[in-house]
């Protein structure tokens, strides 16, 4: 147990720092994914024929290829591409931090899934509400803010909650490209002390705690988003 103590001879502090960076990446990736998802859902529903097809290609490919492969591909190709563009434009090549790269890559992956979730949720809104908003002469942005987003939220929350939980667990994949989040920290600690079970179970408990705490908040957000709607059998 003294191995897990938070002061330096123990590894508890490192594990907690790892958890913190995992959460940072998950929050960033989920937020970026939401942004991409809203754009993607709009593109798929209301975009022109070419935009529709391009978004379909994006969601199909990203959902068919393993996250690990995408992470490697985007991690290497992305940093390489940005540096080449910078050099061509006459700037010094920059070193992209693991945190930013991780957020961008996981956000790109999450975007494909949240596109589908949000598209389904927008389709579940009674279409009369959107037609009414149009009839009032609302601009598309105002309609998004006042009608579409609030009305789709109750339908989107179960799917988005799932995506959030997936995002927290997908951060572990960044261990493979050498980013120091919880899983890699755990492996380093376990390798150094040979106490494999202690550390992996401790890290598992941290992830599980994150999931359970998230579930509490998700339930609260869901109740808030569904306020004023008829109750269902499930709730």
């Amino acid at each position: 147990m003294e191995l897990l103590s938070p002061v330096p001879p123990g590894w508890g502090g490192s594990l907690l720092r790892g958890l913190l960076s995992s959460v940072e990446i998950a929050v960033g990736a989920f937020g970026l994914g939401l942004l991409i998802g809203i754009c993607g859902a709009y593109g798929k529903l209301y975009g022109g024929p070419i935009a529709k097809d391009l978004w379909a290609v994006y969601t199909t490919i990203v959902r068919a290829v393993p996250e690990l492969v995408l992470i490697l591909l985007l991690y290497f190709a992305g940093t390489d591409l940005i540096n080449r563009v910078l050099v061509m434009a006459g700037y010094e090549p920059i070193n992209i931090s693991g945190l930013v790269a991780g957020i961008l890559v996981l956000g790109f992956v999450q975007g494909a899934y949240s596109t589908e979730v949000i598209r389904g949720a927008i389709l579940a809104i009674p279409q009369g509400q959107i037609e009414a908003a149009r009839a009032y002469g609302m601009s598309p942005i105002l309609m998004l803010k006042r009608i579409t987003l609030p009305a789709m939220l109750p339908f989107a929350i179960p799917g988005l909650a799932n995506l959030w939980l997936i995002a927290t667990k997908d951060t572990a994949l960044l261990a493979v490209v050498g980013f120091n989040e919880l899983t890699l920290t755990t492996r380093v600690a376990a390798g150094a002390t040979k106490a494999y079970f202690t550390f992996f179970i401790a890290a598992g408990a941290l992830y599980l705690l994150l999931t359970l705490v998230s579930n509490v908040f998700i339930r609260r957000i869901e109740r808030w988003a569904r306020r004023g709607m008829p109750s269902t059998a499930g709730a």
């Binding site: 939980l165 667990k169 997908d170 951060t171 572990a172 994949l173 261990a175 493979v176 899983t183 755990t186 492996r187 494999y196 079970f197 992996f200 179970i201 890290a203 598992g204 992830y207 599980l208 999931t211 359970l212």
Partner: peptide, 10 residues
């Protein structure tokens, strides 16, 4: 509730 990678390594 835990990542597969962690289970695998455990």
């Amino acid at each position: 509730g835990t990542p597969l990678l962690l289970q695998l390594w455990l």
